[in-house]
Design a protein around this nucleic acid. Structure first.
Lengths: 198, 198
DNA sequence: TGGCGGATTGGCAGAAACTGCCACACGGAT
DNA sequence: ATCCGTGTGGCAGTTTCTGCCAATCCGCCA
């Protein structure tokens, strides 16, 4: 039997191995409060050969990507399963807050500091966020009953990502909690972007 | 005498040399419709030694950065000098359209295709756009009389960048002209974000 | 059980990207 | 002429990354 839908690929053993390796790398970064490691070292810490490391991660800085992508997928899933009558903006806000609470297990703040302090990692971070726009556009489209590739949906996805990014920036955090900043941003864009038209 | 304000650095001869080199690289990419060149080749084409190339551009893909940054600075300047009574969204739309018209001298569309088709360049592109958010936030803050580092201004900057990015994406272009897409996005966010409150 | 085929792995060689160092060239001020 | 700060080129050495091949693992079928 085929236990999973063909177009919704079940996470293969390999994907899991990649994600594990990614998580190990991130934990190493956080433990040492540094990202200054050679590939040889990273491969050693993850129990992979150097060659396999490069097969898992096309470039060494991509090692953080699966971990971050998984976190975002978590948010998307949370929004998707939120009660249907919850306004999309609220659903996102809750999901985001949930993620940052989960942050007790991984110190989100130092992670972001490390990532933003390193050009190469910052680049990966931005790429992942840009990919997230698509996923967010998808769930917005679902909720508002729009085509997922419409300008409206895609723009909404991008706006939500922007608000999220702003909400978790250190300078914003200092002033007030992320979910407040996020809500403030959502209030600014008005109802046209994220409400279902009757 | 000191001919320029100390905190507004006059473009040094070196900066100009860097920008020239960057432009040369971009022109090479466009002429060959390829970005597949070694540093040795790029250095040769720009008339720089390999060593100096690395002094100008920390990583080889950064070679496109000054060129793109200059284009964005051009947009920012255009918005800044737009008539004060023009709504900010309109000012951005005009400036953007102007840039794309300038596109006759550099084929914007193939440039974006090349950049988006290469992970390393795409990363740089996204970084530059993220930097642009700050600059855009600055001119929005100017026009709306807000502090430049307020959440409102920064969010507005990010939203404008998102709309611009969406507007120049090939899939969007195919359907309708960029400045229309941009205007559609601006219409979605409503007046709260970009209008001066009386 | 034993072998077959596809996917994954590790090791090695080599290319390409990048850095540290130093000596040299240039231009302006003394 | 000399000094000095800035920029440059060249070279050696390190790190990152890729191509290739042989070895291994694993599900599967005979």
């Amino acid at each position: 039997m085929t236990p999973s839908l063909p177009d919704f690929p079940a996470p293969s053993a390999r994907d899991q191995a990649v994600l594990d390796a990614s998580r190990t790398v991130v934990q190493l970064f956080l433990r040492e409060r540094s990202v200054d490691f050679s590939v040889k070292e990273l491969a050693g810490h993850t129990g992979l050969s150097e060659r396999t490391f490069y097969r898992y991660f096309p470039r060494k800085e991509d090692a953080i990507r699966p971990f971050v992508a998984a976190a975002i997928a978590h948010v998307v899933a949370a929004v998707r399963t939120a009660p249907a009558d919850l306004p999309p903006a609220e659903a996102f806000r809750h999901a985001l807050a949930g993620l940052l609470d989960m942050g007790r297990s991984v110190d989100v703040e130092t992670f972001l500091t490390l990532v933003n302090g390193t050009d190469r990692l910052r680049a990966v971070w931005l790429q992942v966020l840009t990919d997230a726009e698509e996923a967010f556009a998808g769930v917005v489209a679902e909720r508002l009953d729009l085509p997922a590739d419409s300008v409206h949906a895609r723009f909404a996805g991008a706006v939500v990502v922007s608000a999220s990014r702003l909400a978790i920036q250190p300078t914003s955090i200092a002033s007030r909690p992320p979910s407040e900043v996020f809500a403030a941003c959502m209030a600014l864009v008005g109802p046209a972007l994220l409400s279902r038209k009757e």
